[in-house]
């Protein structure tokens, strides 16, 4: 039943590191399962692991700390309610949780604002790593850094179209009306931008999808 390590194949790369991980470094998926099951330890660890990203996205989108906190709190409550529906084949925990946050932020913006969005504000939207020191920048995943760089380098009209759609949940028709351009032009801009962004990820990762933010063992 129990086999000592010395009885295992002798390839040294297979024998290190130790074949276990402490509870506090559980994968994102395991932590979400504990959170959804109502485990207090996992719940605290889950909120702690994701709160800065959830609040950061809410703050970026709604721009007001009080509304951002309401949105972020509600995102965690929704994640708790829907944890059992999370499917790791369809998304990472981080992007699933951030999609919930974005949708709630969009709802909050729709309630609060009726005035048109300032086109320049979208172009000035802060992105991860904007003013990061070399040390902070090194903490970002290579993918995130490359994607942020690629988004910064997009022609302004493409960047605006893709940010409005991906982050603000605007429809193609809404973007077309806001920018005063035909619907087909918006779709072309979005398509071109997405192809450019995809290229920076795919070129570096020809294989299957890479890991989330959970710690590898």
């Amino acid at each position: 039943m129990t086999r000592p390590e010395s009885a295992l194949p002798t390839d040294p790369s297979r024998r290190a590191p130790a074949p276990y991980q402490p509870v506090w470094s559980l994968s994102d998926e395991a932590l979400l399962a504990g959170y959804g099951a109502g485990d207090p330890g996992a719940s605290a660890a889950f909120v702690r692991r994701f709160q800065s990203r959830v609040f950061g996205l809410a703050m970026t989108l709604v721009g007001d700390p009080s509304t951002a906190e309401e949105v972020a709190q509600e995102a965690f409550v929704r994640a708790f309610r829907h944890a059992s529906a999370f499917d790791p084949r369809r998304a990472r925990v981080s992007t699933w949780l951030l999609a919930i946050t974005r949708n709630l932020a969009i709802d909050a913006l729709r309630v609060r604002r009726s005035e048109p969005m300032d086109p320049d504000a979208i172009l000035r939207l802060p992105l991860v790593g904007d003013e990061a020191s070399p040390e902070e920048s090194a903490l970002l995943s290579a993918d995130t850094r490359r994607l942020a760089d690629a988004l910064r380098r997009l022609p302004p009209e493409q960047k605006r179209a893709v940010v409005l759609a991906a982050l603000y949940g605007r429809t193609a028709r809404e973007i077309s009306e806001m920018d005063g351009v035909p619907l087909g032009t918006v779709k072309t801009r979005v398509r071109t931008a997405m192809m450019t962004l995809r290229k920076v990820l795919v070129d570096e990762h020809p294989g299957p999808r890479h890991g989330g933010s959970g710690d590898d063992v």
Partner: peptide
């Protein structure tokens, strides 16, 4: 999905957790 990760993280107010 990855575009959602581009918003800069920000620490929420104390007591958030």
């Amino acid at each position: 999905d990855a575009i959602l990760l581009l918003a800069p993280p920000a620490e929420p107010p104390p007591g958030f957790e």
